[in-house]
Computed example of a mutant assay.
Amino acid sequence: MNPYAVDLEPFFGKQVEEGTTAYAGAPLPEGTAPAPEEAIVEALRTVHDPEIPVNIYDLGLIYAINRQEGGNVHILMTLTAPACPVAGEMPVQVANAVAGVEGVGEVEVELTWEPPWTTDRMSEDAKMALDIG
């Protein structure tokens, strides 16, 4: 069991607080090359909101990817709504997906509600997939 994982039980059916953070990964061995941002983005594209058939990156739920020393990564993300049923689970899924990328060390995924998500943040592909003009 990941000692950094967020306990999800308290979040089911409740609004998750600003700043809720999930952790995954481990420090990289000295001299390991850090992952390129493109590899991190590809990992993010493997995570989907179960209610929307588009990945979280193309939905525009990822506000920032900050690559840090030692291959560590801090991700600032949001969800479509604070009371989203997977709000407590999604940051954990994101942290685990990114931690699985070669060249990524420790991952910290922070949830924010500001600015609120809107469909304007979606990629053109995501808008087409969901028939949003």
Rank of each mutant, 00 (worst) to 15 (best):
E106D: 06
T32P: 15
E51F: 14
L76G: 10
P116K: 13
I75D: 01
A129K: 00
E114W: 10
A99W: 12
E38G: 08
T32Y: 12
L28F: 08
G71Y: 07
G70P: 15
A39T: 01
P36V: 08
A87E: 01
I56Y: 03
T80Y: 08
I62N: 05
T118C: 11
E69T: 12
E38C: 09
E42F: 05
G13R: 08
V47R: 02
D7Y: 08
L61E: 01
N66L: 09
E37P: 14
T119R: 12
A83P: 00
V47G: 02
G31K: 00
G133V: 07
D125M: 11
V41S: 02
I132R: 00
E110A: 06
V47N: 00
E89G: 15
E17K: 14
G60F: 05
E108K: 10
R121Q: 06
Q93N: 14
E108S: 10
A64F: 10
I75M: 06
R121W: 11
T119W: 08
A22I: 04
P50M: 03
M122V: 07
Q15W: 09
E30L: 14
P116N: 13
T80R: 07
F11A: 12
V73M: 02
V6C: 13
P27L: 00
E30P: 14
N2L: 12
V54C: 01
P36H: 03
T78M: 05
Y63L: 13
E17C: 06
G70I: 05
E17Y: 04
V54R: 00
M122R: 01
P91M: 02
W117K: 02
V107M: 05
P3F: 00
G31C: 06
A43L: 10
M122T: 06
A95K: 04
T80C: 07
S123V: 05
W113P: 01
Y4V: 13
A64Q: 13
P27F: 03
L28P: 14
P115F: 15
V41G: 03
L130H: 00
E51N: 08
G70W: 03
A64D: 15
K127I: 08
V92M: 09
Q68K: 13
A35R: 11
D49K: 08
P53V: 13
G133M: 07
P27M: 02
P29K: 07
I40L: 11
Y23L: 15
G88P: 10
E108F: 01
E89Y: 15
T112Y: 07
T32S: 12
E124L: 05
I65A: 04
E114D: 13
Q15C: 06
E42Y: 06
E89H: 15
T20N: 09
R67Y: 10
E30Y: 11
A126I: 09
A81M: 13
E69A: 14
W117I: 05
